[in-house]
Design a binder for these strands. Structure first.
Length: 765
RNA sequence: GGACCUGUAGCUCAGUGGUAGAGCGUUCGACUCACAUUCGAAAGGUCAGAGGUUCGAUACCUCUCAGGUCCACCA
């Protein structure tokens, strides 16, 4: 054995041994309850970051259960990651001075597919580097045809049950990414903007968005506001930049009399509150802002200007005309921005597909209340879960990106000759108008390839999965151009990967045992898996939800590219070995709180791996010399003869005489009990601390040091005991540090030939 | 505007109703025959502040101060 443990020369070899031995693939045994974890599917095109390295928690659980003899499945996969991937891909395009508008839909889709295909293996190889014992024979990709088939089927069922519907509402739309989002994906940021107090007919009112004035269809006050009560219901004349116009004064509870002057302009097409008021008061909706983020023809001379520029210009022009009362330049408020690119989101009215969430959410909450699924490790995560489900809004599943499965709905153009199409075609040519108008200028392929969505109005006749209209039999049909929200696919991961409804894997492994992920996707993913899983299978998708926290740097700061403190897990593996990184991530991390990691910490754990190696080396040497004739008749070791050191067993256990042996045996038994309990309770850090302390400070510093003379003298009992204790230690440590433990285990004389990965978990003697 | 979390050794963090712990760092001493990725020893904390409950609080409660997070359609 080498003097120091060398991860580089060991890890790849050991992983290959495991993989070739087929140990990651469970044997289905119907008499045993399986242990199953689904890997939270990383984006197929993304390299790993430290967060992924935390999946070590899952590997610990999986390896522990495998050693306990449970049929254990840890299933890996990759996510096509709709908008995320398209965003990354578009950045690449931008480097070549191209954009999504330069390609038709089919071409763009194909290009992204090839891009993902090229990158798919990267994180797979990286996970192997970390030692994750994933069953690669079951690797699934979210766009595998059989997976997509289940997804589409779920949509059909939701539709048939009245839980999927189409509606035109204000959608938070990113004009840069060209897609709308669900409310969950909106990031709120505080910023200071000018608050314009403009003269508005007989009133002065405050707004941050004077450029939307062209879309105003009312003015609102609070019903109880005495200042304005005589105006309610009246029409007022307002002098504007495009001449004088008339709007109605309405009274609505949504208006805060204390804000500004207590009067608000109402722009139903571009403000969430105004949209609600518009519905209540039956107001017209005038679109001032288009999908490209520019003002529409309604804005007259301002048409074509981008929102921000238009705002400044409109404000200037209003001031020039004497219509600006004053400006509060220090108005602090929050705006919604695109979580991807940071662009301020525009609320725009677009018909979208929604999933009615309440009934599904109630079932999901109920399952946790009834403890069919348990959320660990903190009570507050459960509270977060309940709160979100309680206040849930319907889920917008339409995305105007090409990268994903298209929603299986067809609009009939014979029934709806006036279906409005609005899309940006090849070469950036924006196109809109009725279908017939558009058709004259474009081929059908170009139309259905439109990057933007078909703006079919509500009430349009549509068919599911049909090439002919069910109402009129017409064949001039066009498929919904929107694709599914990625999370709609991932919400079904436990079903789709296992082969719902009748694959052997599904019947055996569902519901899965544990779902371990970071709490930040509790709503995006976990809660929705609960909702859809229960809806389709009638059963929860997992028994335990275990939420871990984020990995932060040595100063407790969140890792981010802009701070430059991002740590690459693979670099750490190269430098100190996978075991060191894994142990560092687990060691000293309280359940549910941030996990800080530093180069120093990983190095410290590398030292621990090395310590373990050298204990093994020392024991090996002593066992070797005790059992082999050195050939030198004067060698004192020959006095003990050539006999193999016997195995430690029940008989020897009962006959133990040496107090040192007795003590270490008792200590290692306590350790085994403690570590087992800690793992069962998801107290991984506690287990790691116990293992570290025992291995280094009890076994090495005390027991080995104290008994060196006995080992040297070839004391069979001493050697049998120390080997037994070391074997146990290796077993207990294996889930945490799989590589070094496996490597050392196989080097100890007396090893029974069975790899540690499937060695039985220690039972107490 | 709601809800929540954190404040313990120089740093990052565990922890418990009853003399305060780890890793890293620091200081001193050792090339001891498994390991210098080591060994031996040591220094270092009114456990944020104030009040309360208790025989007793770092731990439970209240408030204050300081950080941080999540949720939310405030023109």
């Amino acid at each position: 054995m080498d003097k120091a443990y060398d991860p580089k020369s060991t890890e790849e070899r050991v992983y290959r041994l495991w993989e070739e031995g087929g140990y990651f693939t469970p044997k289905i045994d119907k008499t045993k309850k399986p242990f199953t974890i689904l890997l939270p599917l990383p984006n197929a095109n993304d390299p790993m970051h430290m967060g992924h390295a935390l999946f070590t928690v899952q590997d610990i659980l999986v390896r522990y259960h495998r050693m306990k003899g449970d049929p254990t499945l840890w299933l890996p996969g990759g996510d096509h990651a709709g908008i995320e991937t398209q965003y990354v891909f578009e950045k690449q395009l931008a480097k070549q001075d191209k954009s999504r508008f330069d390609f038709d839909r089919a071409t763009l889709y194909q290009m992204i597919a090839e891009f993902v295909e090229k990158n798919k293996t990267v994180n797979r190889d990286q996970m192997k580097r970390l030692g994750f014992s994933l069953d690669w024979t079951r690797y699934r990709y979210s766009l595998d045809p059989d997976i997509v088939a289940i997804i589409l089927d779920t949509f059909r069922k939701l539709h048939a049950d009245g839980l999927a519907y189409r509606d035109e509402r204000l959608v938070n739309f990113c004009t840069k990414c060209g897609t709308g989002f669900s409310d969950l994906e909106v990031k709120h940021v505080e910023q200071t903007d000018p608050l314009y107090y403009m003269k508005y007919g007989p009133f002065v009112l405050a707004t941050v968005r004077p450029e939307t004035k062209f879309g105003d269809t009312a003015v609102a006050v609070h019903p109880k506001d005495k200042r304005y009560k005589d105006w309610v219901g009246k029409e007022i004349e307002v002098e504007g930049l495009l001449g004088t116009f008339t709007v109605k004064v309405i009274a609505d509870e949504l208006i805060d009399p204390k804000f500004g002057t207590g009067v608000a302009k109402v722009t139903p097409a571009h403000d969430h509150k105004d949209f609600d008021m518009g519905k209540r008061h039956n107001l017209d909706m005038k679109r001032v802002i288009g999908f490209d983020g520019r003002l529409t023809a309604i804005a007259g001379p301002y048409a074509g200007m981008k929102v921000k520029a238009a705002r400044t210009k409109v404000a200037e022009d209003l001031a020039a005309k004497g219509l600006m009362d004053h400006i509060d330049t220090k108005y602090l408020h929050t705006v919604g921005v695109c979580y991807k690119c940071g662009t301020v989101l525009e609320p725009l009215p677009i018909p979208q597909w929604y999933v009615k969430a309440k009934p599904l959410a109630d079932a999901a909450a109920d399952a946790v209340k009834k403890k069919k699924t348990v959320i660990k490790p903190l009570k507050r995560f459960e509270k977060m879960y309940f709160d979100w489900l309680k206040n849930i809004l319907d889920w917008n599943i339409s995305r105007q990106v090409v990268w994903g499965p298209r929603i299986p709905i067809w609009y009939c153009l014979d029934c709806n000759p006036s279906v409005h199409l609005s899309f940006i075609a090849k070469n950036g040519a924006k196109t809109s108008g009725t279908y017939q108008e558009v058709k004259r200028a474009h081929t059908v392929e170009e139309i259905s390839s439109g990057i933007q969505t078909v703006m079919a109005p509500i009430g349009t006749t549509y068919a599911l999965d049909s090439s002919a209209c069910k109402a009129c039999g017409g064949t001039d049909v066009i498929q919904e151009t929107d694709t599914f929200d990625t999370w709609f696919l991932s919400s079904q991961w436990p079903m789709t990967t296992l082969g719902f409804p009748d694959h052997e894997d599904f019947t055996y492994f569902y519901p899965t045992s544990v779902l371990d992920t970071m709490w930040d996707i509790l709503f995006f993913w976990v809660a929705r898996m609960m909702m859809i899983g229960l809806y389709r299978t009638g059963n929860v998708p997992f028994e335990v939800i275990h939420l871990h926290s984020r990995v932060v740097d040595a100063k407790g700061q969140k890792m981010s590219k802009s701070k430059g403190n991002v740590m690459n897990p693979i670099e750490m593996v190269d430098k100190y070995g996978a075991d060191a990184l894994r142990f560092a991530l687990i060691f000293g991390a309280a359940p549910g709180s941030d996990i800080s990691i530093s180069d120093d910490k990983v190095r410290g754990m590398r030292n621990f791996a090395n310590k373990l190696w050298n204990i093994g080396r020392f024991i090996s040497m002593n066992l070797d010399s005790a059992s082999k004739d050195s050939g030198n008749p004067l060698d004192s070791r020959n006095q003990t003869g050539n006999e193999e050191v016997p195995y430690y067993d029940e008989t020897m256990h009962k006959k133990l005489t040496d107090p040192n042996d007795k003590r270490i045996i008792s200590e290692v038994n306590m350790l085994a009990a403690g570590v087992t309990k800690d793992i069962e309770r998801y107290r991984f850090s506690d287990a790691a601390q116990k293992l570290y302390d025992f291995t280094w400070h009890r076994l090495a510093d005390v027991h080995v040091e104290k008994n060196k003379e006995r080992f040297k003298a070839g004391d069979a009992q001493a050697l049998a005991v120390v080997r037994h204790v070391f074997f146990m230690t290796l077993k207990l440590l294996h889930p945490f540090m799989p590589f070094v433990t496996e490597a050392v285990y196989q080097k100890i004389p007396g090893w029974n030939g069975i790899p540690l990965i499937v060695a039985p978990w220690p039972s107490l003697l």
